[in-house]
Amino acid sequence: MNIGSDLVSVKPQKIVDNRTFPYMSVWIVVLTWNNYADTFECLRSLRALTYPNYHVVVVDNASNDGTPVRVRSDFPEVHLIENAGNLGVPAGYNVGFRYALEHGADGVVMLNNDTAVSPDLLHHLVHAAQHPQAGILVPTAFYFNAPTKIWSAGGRYRWFPPAIIMEKRRQRPGDPLRVLEYAIGSCILITRRAFEQAGLLDETYFFMWEDLDLSVRIRKAGLLILGVPQAALWHKVSQSTQPESPLFWRMHGRSGAIYYRRHSAVPYLAMVLHLGYFALREFLAKRQRHFIPPFLKGIGEGLIQPLKEFPQIQGRRGREDQRAL
């Protein structure tokens, strides 16, 4: 794949209106589990979007703080889906993805509830989505409490020390789109073709690493993950999954083990190198040894967790054929 030549045709242009490209149908899926104050700010920012053809779906993972009732009251225009229990991040999002795709979405935004988006976010993401190989479009995420400091602009694999690290390189608004290795799931636009060719999120994970897993499958399908520097949002970072909790590190270890079982030719060596370095950096160098037991417990769980099949969706043609029968 000649990435360099692909990028020439997608050099961003200043967007005044959308008359130069189609108003693709975009559905935004926000997953919630408590923390309604964050959800309120997120949904309020979505109300200010200037793109004309979008819908918002909130999928609630059995919140116990009254989130569903308050969403219905404060945001009656939002479609609310209530799960009977906490399905986890991938399965929870997949509920919303399926709903959006069944209702004709051309693209679906996976959005964390602890974010606030720029009013022109969708204009820029949809513009970039016109690239014929676009699979995932990734905006630049800034820290909510430091609004000019980049939190993430996608991710890449670093061979030594081994790690998947977030890109923080600042780009100018007129720069070409960047081809990325990984999409960070705080806010990404996933095209319909990406779902049809690579499937939905892997429900083997409960939370963490599911966005990295999807990124690998998108690239294996021959599609691109494109960083869109013009598109911006602000992220509060780990409001629901507190990084100072044993559960966070247990899930980190569990998901990392699942990821390398899925995608590495030498999974056990990859786990030793990557997760071993990670443990040295996070637990020993930072003197957080008390998190080593839950991290190791999670790795053990990930090593024996049965791997589920990737959830698939039916393409438009398949649905049309079924209706014709």
Rank of each mutant, 00 (worst) to 15 (best):
N2V: 11
D6N: 14
L7K: 05
V8T: 15
S9H: 14
V10R: 13
V10C: 13
Q13M: 08
N18Y: 02
R19L: 07
V26Y: 08
W27A: 06
I28P: 02
I28W: 03
V30S: 09
L31K: 01
N34R: 08
N35F: 10
T39W: 00
P52R: 01
N53F: 14
A62Y: 06
D65R: 12
G66F: 08
T67I: 14
P68S: 06
P76M: 09
P76H: 07
N83W: 12
P90C: 02
G96V: 13
F97Y: 14
A100M: 07
L101G: 07
L101Q: 05
H103Q: 14
G104R: 03
H123L: 09
V126E: 08
V126G: 09
V126S: 08
H127I: 00
A129N: 07
A134R: 02
A134S: 06
V138E: 05
P139V: 07
A141D: 14
N145M: 13
N145A: 14
G154S: 05
E167T: 12
L201V: 03
T204F: 10
W209A: 10
L214C: 08
S215Y: 05
S215D: 05
V216K: 11
R219V: 08
G222P: 06
L224V: 01
V228Y: 03
A232L: 11
A232F: 02
T241P: 08
P246H: 05
F248M: 00
R250D: 01
G253W: 01
I258P: 07
H263L: 09
A265L: 09
H274P: 03
L275S: 05
A279E: 12
F283G: 05
L284Q: 11
A285S: 13
H290P: 08
H290C: 08
P293Y: 00
P311C: 02
Q312Y: 00
R316V: 12
R319Q: 08
R319P: 00
E320C: 00
